[in-house]
Simulated assay, not measured.
Amino acid sequence: MAGHVGLHDDHDDVPGGGLRAFLMDALGTALGRCPPLGEGALELRTVTYVVDPPFFGDGDIGHVAVFGTVNELAVAGAHPLALSLSAVVEAGLPLRRLGQLADSVRRAARAADVIVLDVDARVVRAGEADQVHLHTTGLGVRRQVSPAAGTATGIGVGDRLVVSAPLGGFGAHLLSIRAALGHEGVVTTDCVPLASLLARVREAAPSGALRAVYTVGRGGLASALRTCARESGFGLRVDEEALPVRYETQVALDELAVDPVRAATAGCVCLVVAAESLDTVLAVLRAHPYGRDATVVGTVVPAGTPTVELVRADGRRDPLLADAGAPARLA
């Protein structure tokens, strides 16, 4: 697959039909018509993905965009069905890279059981898009209205904070590549679709037991916790020693001087769970391939104002409500 993207390759008069036709051909069977929606409320999520670098050790921006969009829908309580994709491509990007991206989108859509409804592409001058940016809109159906569908209204003192997967691998992988440290050879990004995991938890948990669910993403667990605290009005206390971080990820983050609680994470959610249902939820999470490392990391505590507190191994208590020290452009 030779050639490079040119400034006019998005026009229909380009031989081969332009970038849109190129992407549609490469996506193949991932493209399709919208499946029947059935009963329920429609849920839409529109997300922009900028990943530096967009092609990295164990993946690329294509599968990050598909899985990220699917996970946003699932966290909102919806069953993901389909998505559309738009690419902003730098002139000069090798067509083999664009083909790699399309192949990644195709495989990710199959893994997440969603259809790509439409695709578009535009070209910008070299240096204006970090090779490629992606914009997605995901479509899902919410069969039931539940407090777990992206709100924090049901949270109360004593509820437990649970993360579904190890933290920081995504940020450590990308930052290691940028700094040429070599850790990306052993640190995985762990970008996976979580719709089936969350569906099983919602089916198994008693009514009202799953208080809220938050994506742990580019801002790390700290960002998810801040959102939870502000929405609920409660205090959150997290134990640093309980945070699930793989050894190789911790080594990389230490060298990069990044706190795991602030490191970009993929394929992970933070769940707020009623204490009496904790064992049930943990059992369901750990029975799923993407929830084997689910861990209780903290508790909801009384507070006059929203607070997030990280209890360090030496007993110090660090406030996390203010976003301080997070490296720019983790994703």
Rank of each mutant, 00 (worst) to 15 (best):
P206D: 03
L175S: 10
H183A: 11
L167Y: 14
R218F: 14
A199H: 12
E184R: 03
F170S: 02
G220H: 05
V157F: 09
S196D: 15
Y214C: 11
L167V: 10
T215Y: 02
P166W: 09
R178H: 13
A204G: 02
A205Y: 03
D159K: 01
G220T: 03
L225T: 00
I177Y: 10
G185H: 13
R226T: 08
C191W: 02
R178S: 12
H183E: 08
L174D: 00
A195T: 02
R200W: 15
E203F: 11
L210V: 05
A172I: 06
L174C: 05
P166V: 02
T188W: 13
S196R: 12
V157R: 11
V216A: 08
E184D: 13
G171M: 09
T188F: 14
D190N: 13
G171T: 04
S207E: 15
L197N: 00
G219P: 09
V213C: 14
A209P: 02
L161T: 02
R178W: 14
A204M: 04
T189S: 14
L175G: 08
G185T: 05
L175F: 15
S196P: 07
R226G: 12
R202Y: 14
D159E: 10
A209R: 02
E184Y: 08
G171A: 08
A179R: 15
A172G: 03
P206E: 04
R218N: 11
S164E: 03
T189R: 00
L210Y: 09
A209E: 00
G220S: 07
A199E: 12
R226E: 08
S164P: 06
L161I: 10
G217E: 08
A195R: 03
R226Y: 07
S223G: 10
C191V: 15
G185A: 09
L174P: 02
S176C: 09
L194N: 04
R218K: 05
H173D: 00
A180K: 13
L161Y: 01
A199Y: 04
D190A: 14
G185M: 02
T215E: 14
G168N: 10
A224H: 07
G220C: 08
V201L: 08
L197G: 01
V213M: 14
T215D: 14
L167H: 12
V213Y: 01
R218T: 10
T189A: 15
G182R: 04
A172N: 04
V186T: 13
